[in-house]
Design a protein around this nucleic acid. Structure first.
Length: 460
DNA sequence: GCATGATCATGC
DNA sequence: GCATGATCATGC
């Protein structure tokens, strides 16, 4: 197609030539007006426009070739990706890194090694540009560019996990459950929604149920890890479980195997095994015990952060009931009043929705013993919110949103009003407040998953 | 025993 | 200083 580039190194050199520059710096002045007009007209709506302009003006590909699918020169797939400044991490990605659409019918016949995903996306040319809300896309500056070979440049453990993720997604599609896919199902490679609009559905194998269109993507947290550690070469500030035990297995297996020896044991027995002495009074006692079992000394564990997994210690009563609900981040009233559960135009979701579809939990389950201070480790399990309950969560969200919009803070959804979720305070105390759309102040609150719901989810 | 509102403790 | 996770107090 284009004779100029024969090797990926030539492509990289070309990409590097635009570092610290923006498209408006490199677009020939006689064309700039036309392009500006195009951006003004389509900029917001045509997601691919930035990438298309890069192909045309950075790589001199003819206008009629403007289509992401066609950029595959020297076996390299071009990805332009927005980054934002971050106080401690210099840059974080604004979004996940989205690959090609998943063809639900075709993919069930594929194997990982020969998959269309790998064929197309194995070798990437990544161009990161600094995104700023107030800037025109023609003025975004390129900050760093890298070649990335998905099979060659990342660790064995990560490649294995990505493969497992791909296989998990394909297995779910094979079972005719494409409509139940969630980005939180997997660890590093996700099946993210590509909603043109909610009415858009795709056929899947062996069932008449329509599923939302989805694409493979590197999850945002994993991409941020890649940016920090692999692409910018920053030091780790997390502890890696994998490196400690030199494991080559999936994230799930490695973590669960760490808990295996302690299942059914009391905290005293566990402490004896790991040679650790400590009173049980501290509020973070159980978390410290968990960290000891995992062999880490802090709460920042690389494999959990990379996969957006929250470790939660839950404690059952002797009867097996769970008293405590599970909280999500405090919400901002003004944001909540204005966000949409699903915003198709901007391809965004409400924060609570995003949490449910992207966050995984590692529940470490203890149970109190009757007439004793002792606790027993019952199980450890990974869990993410099942898509079958999403519409109920959406209902709770909509009730909460309309309460906030109307200033009816006493009517926020209570735990008795849904089997899944509710709204409760979540501040330092009742004076810990945030501004509302009405201009008043209200105590901090957040969404919670009902204790009973979580109890069932963990099998009690 | 449970729903609800509230606060505490820790670490980033 | 604040977010997050963990827990408490009260009243029905």
């Amino acid at each position: 197609m284009n004779e100029e580039y024969r090797t990926k190194e030539e492509l990289l050199e070309r990409a590097k030539a635009v570092l610290e520059k923006s498209l408006s710096d490199i677009i020939p002045s006689e064309m700039l007006e036309v392009v500006r007009a195009e951006v003004t007209m389509y900029g917001g709506r045509r997601k691919g426009l930035f990438g298309e302009l890069v192909e045309q003006f950075v790589f001199d590909l003819a206008t009629n070739n403007r289509s992401e699918a066609d950029f595959n020169i020297a076996g390299v797939e071009l990805k332009t990706n927005p980054i934002k400044r971050h106080p401690t991490k210099t840059y974080v990605s604004k979004e996940r890194l989205v690959f090609s659409m998943i063809d639900y019918r075709a993919i069930v016949h594929e194997a990982w090694e020969t998959s269309s995903f790998l064929k197309k996306n194995r070798r990437l040319l990544l161009m990161f540009y600094l995104w700023l809300a107030e800037k025109n896309l023609l003025d975004y500056e390129f900050k760093f560019v890298r070649l990335l070979d998905l099979l060659g440049d990342i660790s064995k453990e990560d490649i294995l996990q990505i493969r497992k993720d791909w296989e998990f997604i394909v297995a779910k599609i094979k079972r005719g459950e494409a409509h139940l896919l969630s980005e939180a199902d997997t660890y590093y490679l996700g099946a993210c929604t590509k909603s043109s609009n909610s009415a858009t559905v795709r056929d899947q194998a062996d069932t008449d149920i329509k599923a939302k269109p989805r694409a493979f993507s590197l999850k945002q947290q994993y991409l941020n890890y890649l940016i920090q550690r692999e692409l910018l070469g920053k030091e780790a500030n997390t502890e890696s479980i994998f490196s400690k035990i030199r494991a080559v297995a999936g994230v799930e297996d490695v973590f669960l195997s760490k808990f295996g020896p302690f299942l059914g044991k009391t905290d005293d027995e566990i402490k004896r095994i790991i040679c650790w002495e400590r009173g049980s009074k501290a509020k973070n006692y159980k978390r410290l015990l968990v960290n000891k079992m995992l062999g880490v000394t802090s709460n920042r564990i690389e494999e959990l952060e990379k996969a957006n997994i929250t470790l939660r210690v839950v404690t059952l009563e002797p009867s097996g009931t769970l008293k405590e609900s599970v909280s999500f981040p405090t919400f901002d009233y003004e944001t909540l009043a204005n966000e949409k559960w699903e915003d198709e135009e901007n391809e965004t979701m409400a924060n609570f929705h995003l949490e449910l579809e992207t966050r995984k939990f590692l529940f470490v389950v203890f149970q109190k013993l009757k007439d004793s201070d002792a606790i027993v480790l019952r199980k450890a399990m990974f869990w993410n919110f099942p898509m079958k309950d999403l519409s109920e969560a959406e209902r709770v969200f909509e009730v909460a949103k309309s309460c906030v919009k109307d200033g009816r803070y006493g009517d926020l959804p209570k735990i008795s009003e849904s089997t899944v979720a509710h709204v409760r305070p979540h501040g330092k105390n009742s004076t810990d407040k945030l501004p509302t759309p009405q201009g008043t102040m209200e105590m901090k609150r957040c969404f919670w998953l009902n204790s009973k719901y979580v109890q069932k989810a963990i099998g009690y």
